[in-house]
Deep mutational scan, measured.
Amino acid sequence: MKVIFLKDVKGMGKKGEIKNVADGYANNFLFKQGLAIEATPANLKALE
């Protein structure tokens, strides 16, 4: 799943980066902790 990092995550990515991560990792950790959001077309447009 493609995500946009909202904060730096050690060993994974930096704020503003777009990366592919495992679905479970994104849903169970990154999204719940507020560290990333899904890289949807609307979210990608908002990032620009």
Rank of each mutant, 00 (worst) to 15 (best):
G13H: 05
D8Q: 04
M1E: 02
A46V: 11
K2Q: 09
F31Y: 06
I4G: 00
V9R: 02
F29T: 06
L6C: 09
Q33C: 15
N28Y: 12
I4E: 01
L6P: 00
V9H: 03
E17S: 06
L35I: 07
G24F: 14
M1G: 03
E17H: 04
K2R: 14
N43R: 07
A36C: 05
K15N: 04
Y25S: 08
K19T: 07
K45D: 11
G11P: 04
L44Q: 06
K2G: 03
L30A: 01
M12T: 07
K19E: 04
K15P: 06
K32Y: 08
L35G: 02
G24W: 15
V9Y: 04
T40D: 04
K10C: 13
M1S: 05
A22L: 12
K19S: 07
D23T: 15
T40C: 04
V3K: 00
A36S: 01
K19C: 09
E17G: 04
A39Q: 01
E17C: 07
K15V: 09
E17K: 02
D23I: 15
G34Y: 09
G11Y: 10
L6W: 01
K2D: 09
A26D: 05
N20Q: 13
E38N: 04
E48G: 12
D8A: 08
E48D: 13
Y25I: 14
E17T: 08
D23V: 15
V3T: 01
L6T: 08
M12S: 07
L35W: 13
L6K: 03
N28H: 14
K7H: 12
E38D: 04
Q33Y: 15
E38T: 06
K10A: 13
L30W: 03
N43I: 09
G24N: 14
K10I: 12
E48A: 14
K45W: 07
E38H: 08
G24T: 14
G11D: 09
A22S: 14
I4A: 03
A39P: 02
I18G: 01
V9C: 06
M1R: 09
Y25A: 08
F31M: 06
K2N: 11
I18M: 07
M12K: 08
T40P: 03
N27V: 15
A46S: 14
K15H: 05
L44G: 02
L35S: 04
L44D: 02
V21M: 06
A26C: 07
E48I: 13
L30E: 00
A46R: 14
N43Q: 05
K45M: 13
A39N: 02
K45Q: 12
K10W: 15
L44P: 02
V21G: 01
L44I: 15
N20I: 15
L44F: 03
I18R: 03
K32F: 07
G11I: 01
A36T: 01
I18N: 02
A26V: 08
N43E: 05
G24K: 12
V9K: 03
A39S: 04
N43G: 05
T40R: 04
P41A: 12
N27T: 13
I37S: 03
T40Y: 04
K14P: 00
V21N: 00
N43K: 04
N20G: 07
K2W: 10
G34F: 09
G11S: 06
F31C: 04
P41M: 11
G13K: 00
D23F: 15
L44R: 06
F5C: 03
G24C: 12
G16A: 03
V9W: 06
L30G: 01
G34I: 03
K14Q: 11
M1N: 04
A42W: 02
A22P: 14
D8P: 06
A46Y: 11
L47T: 07
I18P: 01
P41G: 09
A22N: 13
A36F: 02
E17V: 05
L44H: 04
I37W: 05
D23M: 15
L6E: 01
M12N: 05
A46P: 05
A42C: 12
V9G: 01
L47W: 14
V3M: 02
P41N: 08
D23N: 14
K19H: 10
G34L: 08
G11A: 05
V3A: 01
K7N: 07
K19L: 09
K32S: 10
K32R: 13
M12L: 11
A22V: 10
E48K: 10
G13T: 01
I4W: 02
L35T: 04
M12P: 00
N28V: 08
A36N: 00
D23L: 15
F5H: 00
A26K: 05
A39H: 05
K2H: 09
K45I: 13
K14W: 10
G34V: 03
K15W: 06
D23Y: 15
N20L: 14
E38K: 08
P41V: 11
N27D: 07
M1D: 01
K7F: 14
T40H: 04
G24Q: 13
L35Q: 05
L35M: 07
K45P: 04
P41W: 10
F5V: 01
E38L: 07
K2S: 11
N27S: 11
G24R: 12
F5W: 01
L47P: 04
A26F: 13
M1P: 05
N27Q: 15
N28M: 13
L30I: 03
D23S: 15
N43A: 11
F29R: 07
A26W: 11
G24Y: 14
E48W: 09
V21I: 09
E48R: 12
M12I: 13
N43P: 02
M1V: 12
N20H: 14
E38P: 12
L30H: 00
K10M: 13
K14F: 13
M12D: 04
V3R: 00
M12W: 14
K15F: 07
G13L: 01
V9L: 06
K14Y: 14
I18K: 02
Y25G: 05
K7G: 08
F31T: 03
D23H: 15
G16D: 06
F31R: 04
A36G: 03
G11M: 06
K15Q: 09
P41R: 08
Q33F: 15
Y25K: 05
F31E: 02
D8G: 05
K19D: 01
A36M: 02
Q33N: 14
A26L: 08
